[in-house]
Design a protein around this nucleic acid. Sequence first.
DNA 1: TTGAAGTTAAAGAAAAGTGTTTAAATTCAA
DNA 2: TTGAATTTAAACACTTTTCTTTAACTTCAA
Lengths: 134, 134
Amino acid sequence: MKDGLLTDRQMEVLRYRKQGLTQQQIADIINTSKANVCTIEKSAMENIRRAKETLEFLYTLDSTHLCTLAGGTDLFDIPSIIFSEAEKINVKVKYDTISLINHLRESRPRSYKARCLCEDVEVYVTDEGEIYFG
Amino acid sequence: MKDGLLTDRQMEVLRYRKQGLTQQQIADIINTSKANVCTIEKSAMENIRRAKETLEFLYTLDSTHLCTLAGGTDLFDIPSIIFSEAEKINVKVKYDTISLINHLRESRPRSYKARCLCEDVEVYVTDEGEIYFG
DNA sequence: TTGAAGTTAAAGAAAAGTGTTTAAATTCAA
DNA sequence: TTGAATTTAAACACTTTTCTTTAACTTCAA
């Protein structure tokens, strides 16, 4: 029973990077080449990408993809986007304007800064009107 | 550039399961043994677990460790502990007392019994005041 | 233009994961 | 208790991933 996708080596490199170290500095610390640090970091990012995609798949298992909210969108524009998309496919969304924004804030705390979405966010909806942000 | 963690076989089995088929029925459809369907499903679930854990790790990466809540702590004592620790490092927590308890309940449903924490829980906080229980 | 940071490619050895079979448990409702 | 559904274990071939080295390449600021 192993834990996450990332190997010890990969977590080690990501931690040092987060601290602002260069690949060369990390290479010196863990006693290898900077090229190696680069590939380790790269495969770590790839694993993270795959982890995200895996959970996306879970949503799609009992939801349908509603729309993509583009990075840069104003948070307060989002509810009307979602409501109109949901209307197109005859789904009654379970949230009102306020609670929808709160739902987004809670489930994707990192996806916005101030009033602005800072990355693309996928929106999924179930037949019952439950909304997931993937 | 591969996509998620799950193999085609694993997604196939999960989809059939979602439709309510038994392992035996699936085994007949994809022409293998029910034992094999079982192990495929199991490794799919394991992969999903690992995907989640990987993203958890990401949270801890750009958060700082705030404190450890000791097993045995009363749930209702937790907010003031967290608030005072956050104050020490000049972070304004994004939650009020009630929503903080709810946040804990939702993110660590297995870590408490009644009003009592039943295991040590690590607390992480971002600069923005977001709280994670690790 | 020089140097530091980062990336890419090829190649190999070790480790981990997958799908499979067979056979023997276990769970649990009728 | 019987039987269907599910789980577990061991074993095997196969594929993929990881870490590593070496060497050459790109970016970009000073």
